[in-house]
């Protein structure tokens, strides 16, 4: 249980830090978006605890605002993946036959392919051609990345949910409920869904970790959240260009990603009740 507590403590701290972003910005008197060219490449100091970047923006405030974007994208993508995955997995287990085969073949198809090259191609597609906001708009970017990540994230959840649903559906209490005349909807909602909670919770925690890593990778590649909106990934893309002039800029966003993902992994491990592996 210590793993679960440690992971939850990490995630709680991060959520608090993200929530505190405006207060920290106010206390330090920095705007995370406005360039201040007189203080470019400042090393860490009292006024700029983590230094400044190439446009003189305070790295700490950008990091905290970036936490909001990265955490929001990770959570939203994982939740969407969980909902779609659970629905698909339960549907496949419940209907069986051709529906089951169709869902599982689709999952196998997507699992066989290299995910990141496909994500790159998907993220580069122009959403304005089908009437969605164009790339580069803050809210549109977040939505676009969430949709793309959910498109890949549902598979892991669906496989776990299907396996658990199959086991539950063959249990005696489900047969008893059916014999007593329970409708299929009632069987699924009252008997199957609650039994899915433990495996799906683990899958969701892992999905959050995967989504945050994937978002940061896409933003790093310039295909995710576009500047000036800060995200940990695009801050690192900027930092790579500054390795000679401001090497400290590269440390913090990466550390933030690592701590967040490790927190999610610890929560998943703790929920699974296993010490390691799996």
């Amino acid at each position: 249980m210590t793993r679960l507590r440690l992971g939850l403590a990490i995630l709680l701290l991060l959520a608090l830090a993200a929530a505190a972003a405006p207060f920290v910005a106010g206390a330090l008197g920095h705007d995370p978006f406005a360039p201040d060219l007189l203080v470019r490449f400042e090393p860490p100091s009292a006024a700029h605890p983590l230094g400044t970047d190439d446009l003189g923006r305070d790295i700490l405030t950008r990091l905290l605002y970036g936490a909001r974007v990265s955490l929001a994208v990770g959570l939203a993508a994982a939740l969407a993946a969980t909902v779609i995955g659970t629905a698909a997995g339960v549907f496949a287990a419940w209907r069986g036959g051709a529906a089951d085969a169709l869902v599982m073949r689709l999952a196998d198809f997507m699992l066989a392919l290299p995910a990141l090259p496909l994500l790159v191609l998907l993220a580069a597609a122009d959403p304005s051609r089908i009437g969605l906001p164009a790339r580069g708009e803050a809210t549109g970017d977040v939505l676009r990345i969430v949709v793309i990540l959910a498109l890949f994230g549902w598979i892991g959840v669906a496989r776990l949910a299907r396996a658990a649903a199959l086991t539950t559906l063959s249990r005696d209490h489900v047969r008893a409920a059916r014999a007593l005349g329970a409708t299929e909807a009632r069987v699924l909602c009252r008997h199957v869904l609650p039994a899915l909670l433990p495996p799906v919770a683990v899958a969701t925690a892992l999905a959050v970790a995967g989504a945050i890593l994937a978002e940061s990778t896409l933003s790093f590649l310039g295909l995710g959240i576009s500047p000036p909106a800060p995200s940990w990934g695009n801050m690192l893309a900027n930092a790579q260009e500054l390795v000679f002039s401001a090497p400290w800029a590269a440390v913090w966003p990466g550390l933030a990603i690592m701590v967040t993902v490790a927190g999610c992994t610890l929560v998943a491990d703790g929920l699974r009740g296993r010490r390691r592996g799996g």
């Binding site: 890593l213 790579q240 990466g254 990603i257 701590v259 490790a262």
Partner: peptide, 18 residues
């Protein structure tokens, strides 16, 4: 192992470059 799995590949690359 937990840290290695949580570390974004590109960040590791940047740190090694630095």
């Amino acid at each position: 192992a937990v840290m290695g799995q949580a570390m974004p590949t590109f960040w590791l690359g940047i740190l090694l470059i630095i």
